[in-house]
Design a protein around this nucleic acid. Sequence first.
DNA 1: GCCAACGTTGGC
DNA 2: GCCAACGTTGGC
Length: 154
Amino acid sequence: MAWWLMKSEPEVYGIDHLAAEGTTLWDGIRNYQARNFMRAMAPGDQAFFYHSNASPPGIVGLMEVIETGLVDPSQFDPASKYHDPRSSRDNPRWDCVRLAYRGRFSRLLSLEELRRTYSVDELTVVRQGNRLSILPVAEPIAERLLLQLGPVQP
DNA sequence: GCCAACGTTGGC
DNA sequence: GCCAACGTTGGC
């Protein structure tokens, strides 16, 4: 089982949305490196939900990967901001995964605190200017994060 | 609003 | 293939 960190803006899609929906399609990823990380996911993997462009930004909850290798439907939708005219049904460029809500942590673990606790090598989200919205988290780091955060509340 | 990081595009 | 211009993300 692998661990990940996935960013979303709470104004656009935050932990409250996921808590209400139960599961969600993590679509709209238009960065090849992030896409490739999704391709490396397997059902059962766990992902930290990170609120980006928030005040303060940081980890707020936990998710589980429940389905992988799905074609991202938004690439075919001309009305979507994620529409990609270079994609066709025969040759889709982007895919996505389905995630399930695991719960919120009792506190927010802010980027500022992450920076005080982890080096850039341990957790790349702390690197200045990091724009990748999906990042792998090494197992020992995931365990330390869980110790800092405590149990999730459903 | 500014800026750093960095991916993408297009001219050559 | 190189590189400048441009666009996007996201922290502050």
